[in-house]
């Protein structure tokens, strides 16, 4: 089955006929690409290492990744919660697709936050993991949203999945401050003064690099969302059409480990 060529334009602007790209996403993609190059130049070449009293040296450059990706992941999870609330209100699959897409991209950014934080920590603390309150609560948040994605994979019926994960998407964002606060409080009791925190003093060109990093991360988030949302939307449309091709994987995963479940328990896909 071949689709009619839909792409307009040529060269860079030529769109793949089957893909999730549009004119808008291609233009934003080009802007992101240029900004990434500018960001890398600022972050790795133009900005000077941190030579202040509490010197980070070259390592301050890791912060230009760590902080923006943390901001991007919080943005993503907030969008998931907002889209979940909109789903419960409007009950349209678009909001569900938006919530799901944002959670998945958020998880990618959480992983980057954790890894860059851990790499930075290894240079400062000498170990890959120190019980820094922010890293620890971020790790819990990571598992929480893995659970959200796992719930989505476990429910086959689209309406049931959308409703349940919408509730979870809202509860999850409520959890974030509770977990953050309690872990913070927990560490403040035990913290020794010698442990440096992830709080370098940043100014001048270094501040610019950090700032550009945040802009790039948020633009990248929007660009990824455009594609991921269309992918989720296409999957939902296929599901609705009963074309099981896209569903096959999901169904196989959900059903593979059924074990000794009595037949009467199979609620999925019934309601």
């Amino acid at each position: 089955m071949t689709s009619p060529p839909t792409g307009t334009g040529a060269g860079f602007m030529r769109l793949h006929p089957d893909g999730t790209a549009s004119r808008g996403s291609r233009i934003l993609g080009a802007v992101v690409l240029v900004s990434v190059v500018v960001f890398l130049f600022l972050a790795l070449v133009a900005s000077k290492p941190d030579e202040s009293l509490d010197a980070q040296g070259q390592l301050v450059r890791i912060m230009y990744l760590h902080v923006p990706s943390a901001i991007a992941c919080y943005t993503a999870f907030f969008v998931t919660a907002a889209a979940s609330a909109m789903y419960l209100w409007k009950k349209t699959m678009g909001w569900d697709a938006l919530a799901a897409s944002s959670a998945e991209i958020g998880v990618i950014f959480v992983v980057i936050t954790l890894l860059t934080g851990s790499i930075w920590g290894h240079t400062t603390w000498g170990t890959w993991w120190e019980w820094d309150p922010r890293l620890t609560s971020t790790a819990l948040m990571f598992v929480m949203y893995l659970g959200y994605l796992a719930l989505r994979r476990a429910i086959i019926d689209p309406v049931s999945r959308a409703k349940q994960s919408a509730v979870l998407g809202i509860i999850a964002i409520v959890n974030v401050p509770i977990v953050h606060f309690s872990v913070d409080w927990w560490r403040s009791l035990h913290q020794t003064a010698t442990v440096a925190s992830l709080d370098p003093k940043i100014n001048g060109l270094r501040l610019l690099a950090l700032f550009v990093g945040m802009i790039v991360a948020l633009m990248l988030y929007v660009w990824l969302m455009m594609h991921r949302f269309r992918l989720a939307y296409a999957e939902a449309a296929l599901e609705a059409k009963g074309l099981d091709l896209a569903l096959a994987e999901r169904r196989a995963e959900a059903l593979a480990d059924g074990g000794a479940v009595p037949a009467s328990v199979e609620h999925e896909g019934v309601s």
Partner: peptide, 24 residues
Amino acid sequence: YTAWMLRRGRKIGRQLPAEDRTWS
């Protein structure tokens, strides 16, 4: 992640009739 997402988008998009792909 981007590579996975774009490739999956093409795979899924191919199965979906063009008129449902409102973005393109």
